[in-house]
């Protein structure tokens, strides 16, 4: 943001306060690593589903694991998330969001699955009147 004196993205100069300019922009190497990892982490799940070398359940678990890892890769290499960004507030906001998302997703799926399983069949609903 401000005209910082660090022109390059390498070397963590010890300014612990405020923002790190180099952290916020990343480095060529960081983007390259992130991109290569993303390509691999995208290609494998697509291949797993298109070629189907594994059983359905194993494939499902694997592609979800790959998605989770790729999200972390993007967070680190593209969004430059770390524990120090914005004095730690970014990671706090992120963790809070992740907790809410997990509760909302697992709760919705769990509750609605059981409701579906326990609800009377639709044909009977029409004859109830």
């Amino acid at each position: 943001m401000s005209a910082d004196t660090h022109p390059d993205a390498h070397g963590h100069v010890g300014d612990g306060h405020g923002h790190d300019d180099e952290e916020a922009h990343g480095s060529r190497k960081g983007y390259a690593i992130g991109f290569l990892l993303s390509v691999v982490l995208t290609a494998i799940p697509f291949w797993l589903v298109m070629a189907r070398p594994l059983a359905t359940q194993a494939t499902a678990l694997l592609i979800m694991a790959f998605a989770a890892v790729q999200m972390v890769v993007h967070m680190i290499f593209f969004l430059h998330m770390n524990r120090r960004a914005e004095g730690g507030w970014s990671i706090m906001a992120l963790l809070f969001t992740v907790v809410i998302v997990l509760i909302a997703l697992s709760g919705s799926l769990w509750v609605m699955y059981h409701m579906n399983a326990n609800m009377m069949p639709m044909q009977d609903m029409s004859r109830m009147e």
């Binding site: 697509f46 359905t56 499902a60 592609i63 979800m64 790959f66 998605a67 999200m71 969004l79």
Partner: peptide, 20 residues
């Protein structure tokens, strides 16, 4: 970059899981 992260979720849960 955030939109790309969301897209990871979309292609995994919607498209790939859908094909399974």
């Amino acid at each position: 970059h955030f939109l790309d992260v969301i897209w990871i979720g979309v292609f995994t849960f919607v498209y790939l899981m859908g094909m399974l």
